[in-house]
Amino acid sequence: LNLKQAKEEAIKELVDAGIAEKYIKLIANAKTVEGVWTLKDEILTFTV
């Protein structure tokens, strides 16, 4: 999975969960695949 694909998957998951745009922007700015997954997990843990 490359960075672009990771971001697309994570953003789709966050949108489906009804997460606010400000958190989705954090994913869009992530620099690594690991960073994308870590941010996604943290956002889902603390906002859902």
Rank of each mutant, 00 (worst) to 15 (best):
W37Y: 10
E8N: 08
T38Y: 13
A6K: 03
A17N: 07
K25S: 11
A10Q: 01
A17L: 13
G18W: 03
Y23L: 07
L3K: 01
I43E: 01
L26Q: 06
E21R: 09
V48T: 13
N29S: 11
V15T: 13
E34H: 06
K31M: 10
I11F: 04
V48P: 11
G35L: 13
A28C: 15
V33R: 03
K31P: 06
I11L: 05
A28D: 11
V33I: 11
E34A: 06
E42H: 13
V36W: 01
I11W: 05
E9W: 11
D16N: 13
E13Y: 07
E21C: 12
N2H: 11
I27P: 00
D16M: 14
K40I: 10
Y23I: 04
W37Q: 14
E42N: 07
L44Y: 06
T32F: 02
L3E: 01
D16C: 12
A30S: 05
W37F: 11
I19F: 06
L44H: 03
K40L: 15
D16I: 11
E8M: 11
T32H: 03
E8Q: 11
A6E: 03
D16P: 01
L1P: 10
K12P: 00
L39C: 07
V36M: 03
V15G: 05
K4R: 12
T47A: 15
K31D: 11
A6H: 04
K7Y: 05
K12Y: 03
K7P: 00
V48E: 10
G35A: 15
I27V: 08
E8V: 10
E42R: 14
I11T: 07
A17G: 04
G18H: 05
I24E: 02
K4F: 07
I19W: 04
I24C: 06
Q5L: 11
Y23S: 02
W37S: 09
I27E: 00
L1W: 06
K25A: 12
N2M: 13
T32I: 02
Y23D: 03
A28G: 08
T38F: 14
I43S: 01
T45W: 14
L44K: 04
D41W: 12
I27C: 02
K40N: 02
K40F: 15
K7A: 04
A17I: 07
V48Y: 08
D41K: 09
T45R: 15
Y23W: 13
F46S: 13
A30Y: 01
L3V: 05
Y23T: 02
E9R: 14
K7N: 01
E42Y: 15
I19P: 00
N2K: 09
V15S: 09
T32Y: 03
T47S: 11
A20I: 06
E34F: 06
K12T: 05
L26K: 05
L26V: 05
L44E: 03
L3Y: 02
E13V: 09
W37I: 12
L3P: 01
V48H: 13
L39S: 03
E9N: 07
N2W: 08
L44A: 03
D16R: 14
K40M: 14
K12Q: 09
W37H: 12
L39H: 02
D41S: 09
A20C: 10
I11E: 04
L39T: 06
V15A: 09
V33H: 03
K4D: 10
E34L: 08
D41Y: 12
E21K: 08
K12D: 03
Q5H: 09
I24P: 00
A28P: 02
A30I: 04
G35C: 15
D41I: 13
K4H: 09
I19Q: 02
N29T: 10
T47Y: 15
V33S: 03
V48N: 12
L14C: 05
K7V: 07
G35N: 10
N29M: 13
A30R: 02
T45M: 14
L44Q: 04
K7I: 13
E21G: 07
L26I: 06
G18C: 06
V33M: 06
I43R: 00
K31H: 07
K22H: 14
L26E: 04
G35Q: 15
L26Y: 05
A6C: 06
I43G: 02
E8Y: 07
A6P: 01
T47F: 15
L44W: 05
V33L: 07
G35T: 11
G35H: 13
Q5R: 11
E34P: 05
N29H: 11
N29I: 10
L3R: 00
T47H: 15
E42A: 13
D16T: 09
V36G: 00
F46H: 15
E13I: 14
E42V: 11
I43K: 00
I11K: 05
I19G: 02
V33E: 04
K40W: 07
K22E: 12
A28W: 14
V48M: 13
V48K: 15
E9V: 14
A17K: 12
V15F: 07
A20E: 13
D16S: 11
K22D: 08
K4S: 10
L26C: 12
L3C: 04
I19S: 04
L44I: 07
L39V: 06
T38A: 15
L14W: 01
A28H: 15
L44V: 04
N2E: 13
V36I: 06
